[in-house]
Amino acid sequence: MTTRVLARVTYLLYLGVFLSFLYVPLAVVGILAFNNSALPQFPWQGFTLRWFRAIAADPLLLRAVANSVVVGAAVVALAAPIGVITAFLLVRYRFPGKNLLYTLVLSPLVTPGVILGVSMLIFFDSLGVQAGLATAVLGQTSFIASFVLLIAAARLQKFDRSLEEAAQDLGATPLRAVLLITLPFLRPAVMAACVVAFLLSFDNFNTTFFLIGNEITLPIRIYTTVRLELSPTINAISVVFILLTVTMGMATELLRRRAST
């Protein structure tokens, strides 16, 4: 009995230490965003919002956020149709070379992001294409489409084909059956995939870093700022960044839960 209690206490203690290890660094970032001190360090000098006001006054930062939104939207617009259509292809059809295609479309999930970035940098350069927002969009799409594919394919596999056949049997053409029956069934998964795609794009550094040229996105801007100097403004923008991505993450979680029912 006592050993059981001891084991339980040890386990809870472990979880507590683990969660502290996760949260203390983030708490440090958050607290120092409100510290009225020119450097992001303790001791506490009083509460202030001036570092948040500084964000609004930083045109580069605002531009980075705007770019991130534009890039994210473009990636969603590209990766969502590519991923969903490829999911249809891989779940529904048999054709020669299917396994090879399967391996290739999933390979970006296990390829370091820098490799994707470097290889596309070389390719676009050989075509004479300037690195910029457009190349960053293509670079991110290369792996984000794989995530969309996985989410869409998982949902599609759960789809009962006889529903589509029933629609055809009742007079719908095959295309109409897909549009009226299958796509509505996929909708929650596609919505989840779109939010995931936007989140991944918004978050991406490794691939983007090589393909962004002279432009900036939010992660790139934060990176270059940290390399330059430590400033509480970085903490403030980090807090905003955390709020944005955690909100999006919560949204994907809710959507995915709905998609899995």
């Binding site: 009962d160 056949e165 629609a167 069934f185």
Partner: peptide
């Protein structure tokens, strides 16, 4: 259909 295939949505 065997499992009826009523459109769930």
């Amino acid at each position: 259909f065997q499992h009826l295939a009523l459109f769930p949505l």
